[in-house]
Amino acid sequence: MSSLKFLLSQYLKLKQTSKTASTSGFTLIELLVAMIIAALIIGTLLSFMLNIVTTDRKEQAKSTSEQELQAAIDYIARDLAQAVYIYDADGISRNTNTDPALSGIRNQIPPAQPTAGCNATPTCEPIVVFWKRASLPRDLPVTSGSNNTTIGCLFKLSNGTTCSEQDQFVYSLVAYYLIRDNSTTTNWSNAARIGRFEIRDGIRTTDTSKPSRVEVIGTQPSRTVNYLLLPSPGFMPPNLSLAGDLKARMNQWTKHSAAYDTGVDVLADYVDQSTTAPLPFTCAAPQRIPPATSTTIPNSFYTCVDSTRNLAQVYIRGNALARFNKVPPFYSQVQSAYFPTTQIQVEGRGFLNAR
C-alpha cells in the first residue's frame, strides 16, 4: 500500500513538472526588447564596418592620386628642363597682332586652332606653352621620295647601306592644357584632367626628289622646302629674324596653313575642378597662368612664368574623391586631405640660337 502511494506521488510530481515545462517561455514584450537591442548592436557594427570600408577606399584613392600627380609633374618637369623658351601670360593670352608689343600666340594653338581632344575654348585652357629641342632617333623609319620604299634610318652613308650613328634634334612646340569637357562619350572622368600637345619640325634636305611643302615665314615670300622627314602638320619654326627682343619675336609666331592632325593626349586624370579653392602658394615669377583673378578657370593647375629667365613654377591639385563619385565633389576644407597637391620649379636649360 505504501509502495502504491509512493508511485502515485511520483507520477503527480512528474505530471506537474511536464505541465510547467510545456507552458514556460518568453513573452512578446521580452521578444520585442531583445529584437530592438539586437538591431541596435548590429546596426552599430554595420555602420562601423561601412565607415572602415569607405575610409579605406578614400585612402586608396588618395594614394593613387598622389602617385599619379607626382608622375605627371615629374613628366612635365623633364619636358620643361629641355625648354628653350617658355611663354608667359602675355604670349598665351594675346592673339597675333601687327604690334609686336601686343602680339601673342593664343589664336595659333588649340583650341583656337581645333584638334582632337581640344576644340572648345571654355573647356580646354592652355596653362604652359614652350619651345624645346626634340630628339629624333637615327633609326626612325622614313619613306624615300624617289622610289617610295622605306629606308631604315634618317640618313645613310655614301654607300647607301649603313645608317649614320647620330640622333637628330629639331625644335618642337609643346603645350599643356587643363581640360574640363565632362564628356560622357570618353573614357575619362567628369573631373578635370591635364592634356599634352606637341608639334615638331622636320629634317630638311636639298634633295628635290624628297617630299616637300610650301612655307611662308612672316613677310618673306613663299618657298618650297624638301624634307627627309616632314614636319608635323601645322608646324612652322619661329621667325628669329624679326626685330625686338626674344619675347617679341616668339610672341609673333604663326602656324603653317595646314590644319593640325596631332591631338591632345591626356597626361593625368582626376584633377580638381574647383574655382574657389585656396591657392597653396603665391607666384615668385612675374606672371601667373591663368590669372589669379579668374573666377571661371579652376585653380587646380597653373604656372608662374618668368620668360626672361626661362623659369616656370608648376602646381597641380588632384581630386581623389572624384574616383568613386559620379558627380565629382568640389574642394572643401573638411575634405582637404583628399585633394592632394604637388608643385615644382623648373628652369629650361635648352639653348635657342637667338640671344
Rank of each mutant, 00 (worst) to 15 (best):
W253E: 01
N148P: 00
F235W: 15
S172D: 12
A21D: 08
M1K: 02
R94C: 11
S3L: 11
R200C: 02
S209F: 13
K132C: 07
E347H: 06
A134Q: 10
Y75S: 09
I37Q: 10
S93E: 15
S63Y: 00
L311Q: 09
D245C: 05
S241D: 02
T275L: 08
G160Q: 13
S18V: 05
I36D: 09
T282Y: 14
I36Y: 10
N51E: 08
Q60K: 06
S294L: 04
Q166D: 13
T219K: 09
I29P: 03
I217N: 06
N226L: 03
N190V: 04
A258E: 15
T208F: 14
V174S: 09
A21M: 13
G234T: 04
S332N: 12
K58P: 00
G117R: 03
S24K: 08
D181G: 03
P298T: 07
S103C: 09
Q67S: 13
F330I: 15
I36Q: 07
D181W: 07
T206E: 04
A77P: 06
A312M: 06
M236W: 02
T208N: 09
P211T: 06
S294Y: 02
V271L: 04
S135N: 10
Q82R: 00
F155E: 15
G348K: 00
I344S: 06
A72P: 01
V225Y: 07
T219A: 13
M236I: 00
E68Q: 08
I86P: 13
P231V: 01
N107V: 02
L28T: 11
W188S: 07
C124N: 05
Q345F: 10
T54I: 14
D265V: 12
F301T: 07
P110I: 01
A312C: 04
D269T: 08
P286Q: 05
K15D: 03
T186E: 03
P233E: 01
V129L: 06
A277N: 12
D56V: 09
R193S: 04
V346A: 02
D207P: 00
T206D: 04
Q220R: 05
L240H: 10
T121R: 08
I86G: 06
R223C: 01
M35T: 11
F324D: 15
K58Y: 13
S24F: 14
K156I: 01
T276Y: 10
Y87A: 04
A134S: 11
D261G: 00
E66Y: 00
C163F: 05
I151N: 14
R193M: 03
K132A: 14
S3C: 00
S18N: 04
I199H: 02
T121I: 15
G43E: 15
G152P: 02
Y177H: 02
G43Q: 12
P237C: 00
A112S: 14
G152F: 10
P122Y: 08
A112L: 12
L50T: 12
I289S: 07
E125W: 09
I105M: 04
L279N: 14
M1N: 11
G218H: 06
N310Q: 08
G218M: 05
C304S: 03
T224C: 06
R138Y: 07
F330S: 14
L279T: 15
P238Y: 12
S307Q: 07
V214G: 01
D306G: 10
V305S: 04
L229W: 07
I316Q: 03
I76C: 02
P221K: 01
D139C: 01
P328D: 12
